[in-house]
């Protein structure tokens, strides 16, 4: 293994189901149900998944949902905005914890 993340490993995802296929099948059924068209379109869900993929920084998911976004008719402008939404929420989440910092500092300061 030359890298922890190998591109072709994504195709081996099914292997994870080998020892507890019941759990894997439950997950896959849930996953497919979630990603199917509902109140949101498949295209919108792929863009959400692309944003989440960046927050969890999963190379497999970024690969899969970049393709899925293009294959559902999205463009680079929309996909870039989705990544910015992820970045904004991550950045905002860090920054809003500055209130915690201020609370602690206030508590222990004279």
């Amino acid at each position: 293994m030359s890298h922890y993340y190998e591109e072709k490993d994504l195709e081996r995802f099914q292997e994870v189901g080998q020892n507890r296929p019941d759990l894997f099948d439950n997950f896959m059924n849930y996953y497919q149900g979630v990603m199917a068209a509902g109140a949101l379109t498949v295209r919108e869900k792929a863009l959400i998944a692309l944003a989440v993929a960046h927050t969890v920084q999963c190379p497999y998911c970024i690969d899969a949902y970049t393709r899925a976004s293009l294959e559902n008719g999205s463009n680079l402008e929309e996909m870039t905005e989705a990544v910015h939404v992820a970045a904004a929420i991550r950045g905002g989440a860090a920054l809003v914890h500055g209130v915690q910092m201020r609370n602690v500092a206030a508590k222990i300061s004279m």
Binding site: R43, L70, G73
Partner: peptide, 16 residues
């Protein structure tokens, strides 16, 4: 498609 990927489902793309 504009690259090495498959086309979207036809009806949602037509709507878009």
């Amino acid at each position: 498609p504009g690259g090495a990927f498959f086309p979207p489902m036809q009806k949602p793309l037509e709507d878009l």
